[in-house]
Design a protein around this nucleic acid. Sequence first.
DNA 1: TCTGGGGTCCTAGGACCC
DNA 2: TCTGGGGTCCTAGGACCC
Length: 423
Amino acid sequence: MNRHPIAISDSKNFYVSAERIFDVSLANVPVIVLSNNDGCAVARSDEAKALGIRMGEPLHLIRDKIERHGIQVFSSNYTLYADISRRVVDTYADFTPSVEIYSIDECFLDFSGFRDREAHAQAMRAAVRRRVGIPVRVGIASSKTLAKCANEIAKKNPIFHGVLDLMDEGLARRLLPKVPVGDIWGIGRRTEAKLKAIGINTAEELRNMPLRQARQLGTVVLERTVLELQGEPCLSLDEVEPPRKGMAVTRSASTPMTDFDTLFQAVTAHASRAAEKLRQHDLVAGTLTTIFHTNKHRPDRPQWSAARSTKLTPMSSDTFDLVDAARRCARAGWPKDGKPYAFTKAGVLLDDLLPTSDRPLTLFDTMRPKSAQLMAALDAVNERFGKKTMVLASEGTSRAWDLRATHRSPRYTTRINDLPVVK
DNA sequence: TCTGGGGTCCTAGGACCC
DNA sequence: TCTGGGGTCCTAGGACCC
């Protein structure tokens, strides 16, 4: 089989490493970076990990430790991290023709064609260290999942000096029995438990699992993981970033929201931030959803969660439209049974995103059905398709026909399905 | 009035990732 | 008192149409 080496390079404790670039006094001391709301630790230096600070640990539970050990604490600075990330990617690009950005601190790299892959990876590491100041580790294998395994092993065993090449089957057979099944990319807590229940505890054991059984236990996703562990690539290197499908603005509230006005304010703020984000990315949204729920960490208190969606017609990135839609959704989800709920989280989700330039023609504005707008929309269709055409509002309703009668339109009438697809 | 199957689209929920 | 935020993909089941 023709096996192309894929590398994954990830930055060590990325947010912490980024902060350290600008402050040498942070070297060799415990450092943590907090989540958006300063709620919990999302990045930890090795020293902080050694003190037992866990990923996602709430700040209020570790105040003691911070005090006692003089741990340096930072709020997250995503603008900075994004900039550092871009510089790291630029450096990778000097070492391979093909880079897939997987996350803010990880890239998959095409490593085929290099005679000494390990030396090449070491040279790349040194370059990133020198030019950007970030330590990275590299795993190499014939599939993404195996490369992630290699990276994981290199991360935990200093003897590899930050680079492990698992293209060699003999080496893979020696090392994979030592990788816990839960450490494999794509195996989360649920699947780990299911696998352990049937005696599969390591990467080596998972790789030998019958495909049919894998599919039955964990759908095609698990089946792919097994194939990938066998060295058969199922996930290709994807250089072009796929268009985004949805986006979200959600926040936990420091003080619970118990009355509707307070929730209204939160939803309003999130919706206008969401509108900003849309415009930043030159997108419009077709669907808006609001969500809010009570504190799941307090099951002793009355619980409520609500999610309500609405279609945005026309598709929009207009702050006013989004705020308006979000408020309507929130009102629809607000509890009516009079219990004293304390909401601690609210959010606005946007879906069915399209680039602004691809915004489809709006034929009927259902919120404000004015004949002038209707005729303007039809004129836009005519102009676009170069023929006299009238489009039905939808098949199976008489509304379009009624409109046609009302306006005595001289235009032709065409089924919506017969029109060219507007993308 | 009863009986059928096939296809598509949509949605909710689960699981996972960084 | 205080417990992150932002994503993707897959499946099952219902609605609807022919």
